[in-house]
């Protein structure tokens, strides 16, 4: 009797839990948490690269090209952080949604999304990347400043 009296309540509670409320809430919490994590990640250093593999062992040609471009500009290690998305599947899918960008690598400078490999290469060729890195005080403008100092 007790059991039969309890049953409807239990199943009603279960049904309530199974309804979209708990599921969507869970998903949103997870997504918010991932979002906050990525936000912290992109602000961790002036230059942040989400890539496949590591700078010494890139796991994809596009990620290798991205590292080579940053290397070419002499981005100092202490101003840069890379995240290996292959080691973190949540980050791998999360960063695509976060940046609204479908591919890896992804470059952030000063907490702002710059672009993927194609954009990095074209900005490198046009000189925009160097300027962006200088503006964010990642690298210093060598020639002009050095010459001025030498004169004074």
């Amino acid at each position: 009797m007790l059991r039969s009296a309890l049953q409807p309540t239990v199943s009603a509670t279960r049904a309530a839990f199974r309804k979209p409320t708990s599921a969507t809430l869970l998903r949103r919490l997870l997504s918010n948490d991932a979002r906050a994590r990525i936000q912290r990640a992109i602000e961790a250093k002036p230059v942040v690269l989400f890539m496949k593999g590591t700078p010494s062992i890139p796991q994809c040609g596009f990620s290798r090209a991205a590292i080579q471009v940053l290397d070419l500009h002499g981005v100092p290690p202490e101003k840069m952080k890379t995240y290996n998305v292959l080691e973190d599947s949540e980050l791998r899918s999360g960063i695509k949604e976060f940046s609204d960008w479908p591919t890896i690598p992804q470059l952030y400078v000063g907490g702002e999304f710059v672009g993927g490999c194609d954009i990095m290469l074209s900005m490198h060729q046009s000189g925009e990347l160097e300027k962006l890195l200088q503006d964010n005080k990642v690298i210093v403008q060598v020639e002009g400043e050095a010459a001025e100092k030498a004169v004074s």
């Binding site: 960008w101 479908p102 999304f113």
Partner: peptide
């Protein structure tokens, strides 16, 4: 900008 162009294409070819 290049970024805006790429975003446009990414969206079309999602």
């Amino acid at each position: 900008s290049t970024l805006a162009r790429h975003r446009l294409i990414n969206e079309l070819l999602k």
